[in-house]
Design a protein around this nucleic acid. Sequence first.
DNA 1: CGAACGGTTGATTTGTATCAAGAATCGTGG
DNA 2: CCACGATTCTTGATACAAATCAACCGTTCG
Lengths: 251, 251
Amino acid sequence: MQATPQISQNKKADSCADCPIQHRAVCAYCEKTELLMLEAMKSYKTYNAGETIIMAGDEMEFVGSVVTGVASLSQTMEDGRRQMVGLLLPSDFVGRPGREYAAFDVEATTSVTLCKFARRPFEKMLEQTPRLRERMLEMALDELDAAREWMLLLGRKTAREKISSLLMIIAKRQNTLVQIEQASNLKFELSLTREAMADYLGLTLETVSRQINALKKDGVISLEKKRHVVVKDVNRLLNETGDDADGGYFT
Amino acid sequence: MQATPQISQNKKADSCADCPIQHRAVCAYCEKTELLMLEAMKSYKTYNAGETIIMAGDEMEFVGSVVTGVASLSQTMEDGRRQMVGLLLPSDFVGRPGREYAAFDVEATTSVTLCKFARRPFEKMLEQTPRLRERMLEMALDELDAAREWMLLLGRKTAREKISSLLMIIAKRQNTLVQIEQASNLKFELSLTREAMADYLGLTLETVSRQINALKKDGVISLEKKRHVVVKDVNRLLNETGDDADGGYFT
DNA sequence: CGAACGGTTGATTTGTATCAAGAATCGTGG
DNA sequence: CCACGATTCTTGATACAAATCAACCGTTCG
């Protein structure tokens, strides 16, 4: 939680043509001329793991897209109880256009590179660019669906189901569908600490630890290096999530 | 859960000019000519309390707005565990444009009147009408915020805090801000059963009953007729929610 | 009237939090 | 490269909030 040794880096932006998230980010539907406008107003910044990107209540000077890394969106109560309300992966959007003050904390979970746009110019362009708004709407609706899935998890799932669901979600996002469906041996890097998982799942970190080790003991997963998970049997893990059939994981 | 005696009613639509939700619904920003197009494709339907409006997995033939009444959006697990993921009040939108099959159950909590649009024509108009898309985006972002607030509630709040939060939310929506801020005696109709509240809050109905009666015993609220709540001291209730200061209730 | 529904209340169980200690891992500087 | 302190993670004992199981009450309505 202390000041990190390295300093987060500002960088002149690369061309949108080389952007790794160009097909999934807010700008996905933009035409060349529109991309040129965005290029003129964008800049990259890299944050170190653990660094705070935005604090709730801060004035929102920028919005942007996650280019690489994992960031988290969370809320904290006065007495310190914390709940993560979003996991921001590459191509996810940060910030709400039209909002002056941040409603949630945004933190870099791993090292994170953002493609930032000054808020005002971006808002103005959003007004004038149907393609941008269209993608924005799509993304907002997708996030809303994800949030609602998460509400079921938080409200009704057991600790073991919560952990299993989280593992499936991360596995799904880090591997292609094909790999998941065939593979009976699926590996991935778990870039969250036990505490971050607890904040996401509405549990304590002790419970997270116990449940992960229970899944390991039961042969559903195995661990290499604490944060590196090997799923021995994907269908077994899927059953543990409490979701029916494919639980939408393969849709 | 059985067929209700009365039959839900289809009705030729009223003019948009007389619509009680015209300033808050998806169509809020539409111009006269656009409203005329919507008028041509809309129809009203009234559902009885308890009736299912849409079942998860159904083909979505329509989208629409809640005109009067309260509906709920919820998810059910195979073993019957249920979680409400949205409370639909007048002006709220039902359905996701671009989606063919419903992802959630929609049920009438009270008697509900919907202003329905056939999905395809509506989607087509959405593509061609920036004002409609703009309002849609705003509403989706607002819902996303609400969903994230709810995630904090589900993941981290105690039963008592959950109940208090729900009461505040309903009080806030059924009364004007002015009334809330001044009034030291705030009344409202609680249109949810204990079971529906439990589904919303991620609790059992017994816990809901106990906590409501605890708040009553502690003099925070009093009850007339089980579903009619009188808040004796709004600030007292606000403190019980666990949210800081005004908790965004007055913003 | 009697069944069905919504609500209350009590006794008991249980899953997860809390408190506490220690082990493993990581990063840093000597 | 090793030693250190600091994180991160594990594991155990205990406490507690809410779930579960169960009985009962009041309304409503056919």
